[in-house]
Nucleic acid binder design. Structure first.
Length: 463
RNA sequence: GGUGGGUUGGCCGAGAGGCGAGGCAACGGACUGCAAAUCCGUGUACACGGGUUCAAAUCCCGUACCCACCUCCA
């Protein structure tokens, strides 16, 4: 059963055939580091982290590149607004982003190139496009360089749009463009902009356009042809269309597969800063743990719209705790990840364009089977191992050190001793049939966040 | 105007011609001193109107509503 992935370019789910057997190269458009990340931003990171994990299970060595856009109009504007140097703003925002990814157990990419560190590569690519007749410096002396859309007949193929049908942007400033649809490869510096935000080029000082960054960096780290290019759906046009046009016009094959994750909306609308701070990752994590948020994201398909709600988030957290509860009851499992322990149905679901919802259903089926075995007095080691293997693929294994593990062993020891004392007291009360006293102890522990579970082998507790 | 996606039970969320994914919640039963946890059981859901078919949530036609992109937004 081959792994099949949905390719936006062909609009179908097709077999994944890597350019080099046993290897997969992925380029994911990262974020523009101009503001703190919200839940929607990290969904992309989580979706492609799951893809990466699954490719690895399937025996591929994965080279995963995720860029950082650290120079653009908004960054300059925001920096000025906040009285910060633009590069100071991006440094702070980048740290927030790293933290958000870490809180959701999104593995760091193989390499994370920053746009500002790759200006020479971009200039080289722009020069190549000019030489080939697909780009031109603006005639108005602005120092801008544009891609010549009319010179590339395939333009529009990724999103299947005809150039003539496209609505020209109303606010498009034609400046030195030959056609309003031509887009900037290089933007000449303006006097109002800080000098640190421009670099020398054959066309005068300036800075790169957005699209050229990704073409240059993907080419540098993955080569002229690579397997998968990913990002959010909104990037299909113009960003990805433009990237593909540039790279192919420069003679590169570029991506074999295009994968796009869907949105998270709130109140039916796209998440944005105007909706307030409530959905920033650190704020959401005041309500649920990182692993629970990640479970919520992974439980729906990456190409499906998710309407974010705290109610749904709470439900997901409850479902996840059920799984955790099973693992605790089942006792320990052998260490290490065990792809061999993955149920077939789980693998089939994942092979079908990362069918995480069906995969999660298998997870729950296995948990129920394990719980049944335990309820019947048997052992559930096989189920527990399978569950942990599945959770590992989804990046939500509770024992993954990424979640921080036991916060403080000494403290845990202290609490354990205190709770043990109270449980002994309760056991005496129960033996005396002093139910009021027994229940009082249980209620007080519960109020403190300690849940008591009576088992045939005596009570256990968890937080 | 062009392009793409959607509308599934109280809620979330899969599926894509026949066999009721899974979760959360609810109700009944088992277990328990009572609970909790767990197990067992309980649902004739697929926007609307037509059509095709032995069979439609799934295909076709039409309608309504929603969303995204065509602006340097994951």
């Amino acid at each position: 059963m081959p792994l099949r992935l949905h390719d936006t370019a062909t609009r179908e789910v097709r077999d994944f055939v890597p350019l080099r057997p046993g290897h997969a190269g992925i380029y994911l458009c990262g974020l523009t580091v101009q503001s703190a990340p919200h839940v929607g931003h990290v969904r992309s990171g989580v979706c492609f982290d799951v893809l990466r994990r699954w490719l690895e299970v399937r025996g591929h060595e994965v080279t995963f590149i995720r860029n950082v856009t650290d120079i653009d109009d908004k960054i300059l504007a925001k920096g000025e607004e906040q009285g910060l140097a633009w590069w100071a703003l991006t440094a702070v925002t980048k740290r927030q982003l790293d933290e958000a990814y870490a809180l959701l157990n999104v593995a760091p990419p193989t390499y994370e190139p920053a746009a500002t560190a790759h200006v020479p590569e971009m200039l080289e690519l722009i020069g190549e496009l000019i030489d080939r007749g697909h780009a031109y410096p603006a005639a108005d002396g602005s120092g801008d360089v544009y891609f010549d859309v009319a010179s590339w007949p395939a333009y529009g193929e990724l999103t299947r749009q005809r150039v003539d049908d496209m609505e020209a942007a109303e606010d498009a400033d034609p400046r030195g463009k030959r056609d309003p649809r031509d887009f900037a490869l290089w933007k000449g510096a303006k006097d109002s902009e800080p000098r640190t935000a421009s670099w020398p080029s054959p066309w005068g000082r300036g800075r790169p356009g957005w699209h050229i960054e990704c073409s240059a960096m993907a080419g540098k780290y993955l080569g002229d042809a690579f397997d998968i290019h990913g990002g959010g759906v909104d990037l299909r046009f113009p960003h990805h269309e433009n990237e593909q046009a540039q790279s192919r016009a420069a003679g590169q094959d570029f991506a074999s597969y295009w994968m796009h994750n869907a949105w998270i909306t709130t109140s039916g609308e796209k998440m944005s800063k105007s909706l307030g701070n409530s959905l920033l990752v650190p704020n959401v994590l005041e309500r649920v743990r990182g692993v629970e948020l990640r479970y919520y994201l992974v439980a729906s398909h990456y190409r499906s719209h998710v309407e974010f709600s705290f109610e749904a988030l709470d439900e997901a957290a409850a479902a996840y705790r059920r799984v955790e509860g099973f693992l605790e009851r089942a006792g320990g499992t052998p260490a290490g990840d065990l792809p061999d322990a993955l149920p077939d149905a789980f693998a089939i679901a994942m092979d079908d364009d990362l069918g995480t919802p069906a995969a999660v259903a298998v997870l729950h089926d296995t948990v129920r089977a394990g719980n049944s075995a335990l309820a019947a007095g048997g052992d559930a080691a096989a189920e527990a191992t399978a569950v942990r293997a599945m959770l590992g693929v989804l990046g939500v294994d509770p024992d993954d050190p990424a979640w921080g593990g036991r916060s403080d062993d000494r403290l845990t020891g202290v609490v354990d001793a205190l709770v043990a004392g109270l449980l002994e007291e309760r056991a005496r009360a129960r033996a005396d049939k002093d139910w009021a006293r027994a229940d009082d102890i249980r209620d007080r522990l519960k109020a403190a966040g300690v849940e008591i579970t009576d088992t045939p082998d005596g009570p256990t507790w968890s937080t």
